[in-house]
Structure formats: C-alpha cells, structure tokens
C-alpha cells in the first residue's frame, strides 16, 4: 500500500512534464522533495536531490529520497560530466552567488538542464520601481530588499543572454502568469519579458 502524494505545485507539474520516464535526474535546491517524490512514483525516475536547509534534507531522506545537504554554488563541481539526463534548478538560480558557474555546471553534469526563475522584467516590477521608486515587492518576490535570499534577480531577456554566454541552447520555454498558468507569448520574447511572472526553460549544451 502506497500513500497518495499531495498534488504537485503547478510550476513543478510543468517541469515534471518535460522529464522522460526512467531517466536520471538531479534536483538542485529540491526543498521538501515534492518533485523527486512525484517523479519517482509516476515516471520511475532515478532521482537525486541537493538541498541547503537541514530541515529539507532530513524530510527528504526520512521519506526515502536520495538527497544530500549541499550548496549549488560549491558542490556541483564534484559531479562528473554527463552524470544525469536532467539537472533541475527550480526557483533557485536567483539565490546563487554565481549563476554563470551554476548554469555551466548544470549543462556539464546533465544532458539537459531545466531552470525556472521569477522574471524581474514583469510590468508590475517595472511599474513599482518607476512610479514608487521602491524595490518591488510582489506575490512572487515577496521579501523586502534587505532580507531577500534573491541576490541575483534577472529578467527573461537577461537569462536568454546568460544562456548565450554560457553556450547553452534553449530547447523549450514556458512563460507563466502569477498563477503558474502558461501564457501564449513566445517564452523568450519581449512580451514574455513584460507579462510573465515566471519562466521555465529546458536547456542543452550548444
């Protein structure tokens, strides 16, 4: 008898849809392991996780998931090239010290990388800065500037540029509204950059 899993958060569901069954996957910043547990159950994925918080790691391992306490900035370099089919970084890129290196390592370790992040180019963010003259606080970015873990926020266009510099190809992208519903706009275009609150991108080495 297996206990039913709680439903997956909407943005994680979209990531899960990108994953081939029976593949090997590393979830960097896996939190409580919801994505790993779902993929293990529904797609027979050989999943591993890395998580900074001790509470998150303990919860994952207590639930039978293979997760290590570790830091994307320092621990990705240990992994050999092509160790995984997918390396996932969900809502974490903007909190890393060196997003450039993290993205490089992801593309090296995995045949594919999947990155999702909050879009700092969203019109509400722009509006807040322009008319209120204050650092934006939105539903997606809810912390004040002085206690946000997000030290490297970027816009979708910044991310596209970073991918070009790192030499990875965006195979697929989804622009999302605030409720994690896909928008019709091309996921790397100007409209997405203005109207998407989040973006999810499937990458591969160029």
């Amino acid at each position: 008898m297996t206990t039913p899993l709680p439903p997956l958060r909407a943005d994680l569901s979209l990531i899960a849809e990108m994953i081939e069954p029976k593949s090997r996957l590393l979830d960097v910043g896996c939190g409580d392991g919801a994505l790993l547990a779902w993929l293990d159950r529904h797609k027979d994925v050989d999943g591993r996780g890395m998580e900074l918080s001790m509470g998150g790691v303990n919860a994952c391992v207590s639930n039978g998931l293979s997760v290590i306490q570790g830091d994307a900035d320092t621990d990705l370099k240990d992994y050999p090239s092509d160790a995984f089919d997918y390396v996932v970084l969900s809502q974490t890129l903007q909190a890393t010290r060196n997003p450039h290196t993290v993205l490089e390592d992801m593309a090296r370790i995995g045949r594919h990388a999947i990155v999702s992040f909050p879009n700092f180019g969203h019109w509400r963010v722009r509006f807040g800065l322009m008319f209120r003259g204050r650092m934006p606080v939105t539903e997606t970015l809810s912390a004040q500037w002085y206690d946000t873990p997000n030290i490297h926020l970027c816009t979708i266009r910044d991310f596209v540029e970073l991918c070009r510099e790192v030499g990875v190809v965006i195979e697929r992208g989804i622009a999302l509204d605030g409720l994690a519903r896909p928008l019709a706009h091309a996921a790397t275009g100007r409209r997405a950059n203005l109207f998407a609150e989040n973006g999810i991108y499937l990458l591969r080495r160029g």
């Binding site: 050989d46 790691v57 391992v61 290590i68 306490q69 240990d78 160790a83 995984f84």
Partner: peptide, 18 residues
C-alpha cells in the same frame, strides 16, 4: 566521503543531524 560518492555519480544521501 559524500563528495567522492558524488564524483562517482553514486546514489547517496547525506544528512548532518543537529
């Protein structure tokens, strides 16, 4: 040990208990 296991792409969990 964990770093070495990662470098070998082994299936490893690592927990530091408070």
């Amino acid at each position: 040990v964990v770093h070495a296991l990662n470098a070998a792409a082994a299936n490893v969990s690592f927990v530091e208990v408070e």
